[in-house]
Design a protein around this nucleic acid. Structure first.
Lengths: 139, 139, 139, 139
DNA sequence: GTGGTCTAGACCACT
DNA sequence: GTGGTCTAGACCACC
């Protein structure tokens, strides 16, 4: 149950709520935070937690089930797949998608390989410094 | 006017068509393929070219105008902005968005800085080899 | 539009309505009554026709889309897949399922191959005679 | 009691577990594997064997009793009906249902009588060859 | 007009 | 308690 804290319940208006929650779950799966075979909270519980309608939450689980990530046991609840290899699969697939979407966009913008890498490094540095500043603040 | 060939007219169903066409334009602006002050095709022409509804095309131009990228001259058509700095601005903004979206996703998936860079390099290599193979094929 | 008459709107209570309507569609696809690329009635129209809620109808189309049988065009409607081979695929798959379910059940009941065939033939005869009687009635 | 091995305990999620177990019993009755008047295992035993909830098992026996297939003797357990004709009845009824469901589906898919018979024969052949192969493997 | 999402609330079957 | 289905009605974006 400890993983519920990983969720925030503020959603952006561009993408459907159920899609956003779906991604939250897949990320937890990919990071191994939810273990294979583990029971996940009931639809109603999650709906309360995230302050969405139960039907919306139902849809999230429905799509996760469709994609083979979780499965329902009648009257008992939903469980993360027992398939160990799934975690790896999900992680690899999502990372690959992110990378290739990113590359496609940058190429479309006319960036060359080296430029892409330098832009990325630049941004990473900024993030790090941002974190440092935060740490200083919190001291 | 030679830039129309840069458009493809197969759209995916998830994102609005007008949004997809909008991005096609901004990319051409960012890459400098459309020159400042250059006239762009009429709404009707573009709608025919891309096989979309004229209303949809209308909306694209409307949003581009709202963002200051193009402007209409009464009775003569639409023109790309004369503001030289705009090209730079658009380019930088779009690249920055792409980079930070990408980073956010990879962090959420549990990747560390170095891993992100290696994943990216790996993928770039693959793309290059794919291109080589294509060239061989076409010989 | 002529195929709407093929639907009845009395459903049994054991299986979900959306599932029953789903099967009605797949049967029409399998029989080639709905042509590839053909537009199918809007969600709201079908909901009225079949006297079900629009959400229920939405779900039917959603599942048909998921299975690659139909696809939606934003603001325009739903269309049966352009993939010619799909009709054959669906037909074969559904028939095969029916046959193997039937065989499995009969074997589980202890029937042997010849018995199964005779039972089937017997029933077919009955159906035919039933039809004849109906024809006589209607004369 | 030797018939318990005829049960498998992996259930599908679409149909209620109690319904699936119910059918397992009726099949054994229909095939005469459970003899008239024979004692059947206690609810608790069966629940353990099949790894289901005792309440679920309770419901199975309840429905079997409702249909006159079994009856309880106070304090001693459940027994298959003494009515000899029951075996025949059950068998005929289930077979008839299977046949007519199958026919209905095949007709709905647009198959004609002869086609149905050939499809069936084809599949029977396949099953037989599959069995042969299995036997070869196990040699 | 079209599809798509979301909410609220009800009812049911299953464990 | 759990999941699953269905209804009614609203609102939005898209074409």
């Amino acid at each position: 149950m400890g993983f519920v804290e990983n969720f925030t319940s503020d959603f952006d208006n561009k993408t459907p709520i159920y899609r956003q929650i779906y991604r939250l779950f897949t990320r937890l799966f990919a990071r191994g935070i939810i273990k294979t075979g583990e029971r996940i909270p009931s639809i109603r519980d999650m709906a309360l937690q995230l302050k969405v309608n139960a039907n919306t939450m139902q849809r999230v689980y429905q799509e996760l089930e469709r994609d083979g990530l979780i499965h329902s046991k009648r009257g008992t609840g939903y469980f993360f797949t027992e398939d160990e290899s799934m975690v790896e699969k999900v992680s690899v697939k999502m990372a690959h998608e992110a990378v290739s979407n990113f590359l496609e966009e940058m190429y479309a913008l006319g960036f060359k390989d080296e430029q892409i890498l330098t832009e990325l490094s630049k941004q990473i540095k900024l993030v790090k410094e941002g974190d440092k500043l935060e740490n200083i603040d919190s001291n």
